[in-house]
């Protein structure tokens, strides 16, 4: 069992599910990676590095996107 936080929400994963990378996490969450920017533990992850960025138990992931605004 392991836990990560995505946008402040705790997500549980079975022991066998780790490790996975950021691209795989986005697929699991059904989020289009082309439209998001990500932070892990406060560090910005460039989109080109999504598939090589491994998510570990206890990580805090922020997924951010553009929305309309003034």
């Amino acid at each position: 069992m392991g836990r990560i936080k995505v946008n402040g929400v705790e997500k549980e994963f079975g022991a066998g599910e780790f490790p996975f990378n950021l691209s795989e996490l986005l697929e699991m969450l059904k989020v289009d990676s082309a439209t998001v920017v990500a932070e892990i533990g406060g560090d910005i992850i460039e989109r080109s590095k999504f598939s090589e960025t491994v998510i570990e138990d206890g990580d805090s992931v922020e997924l951010i996107r553009f929305v309309p605004g003034g």
């Binding site: 059904k30 289009d32 920017v37 553009f66 929305v67």
Partner: peptide, 30 residues
């Protein structure tokens, strides 16, 4: 101008940038 917010991981997210021609307009994030 555009804003930044958290992705809603429970619902489908709309890609508003697809509606803005980036070749024509300078995107100014706020």
């Amino acid at each position: 101008t555009v804003a930044l917010r958290r992705v809603d991981i429970e619902n489908e997210n709309d890609d508003m940038l697809a509606a803005i021609d980036r070749g024509k307009y300078l995107l100014l994030p706020n």
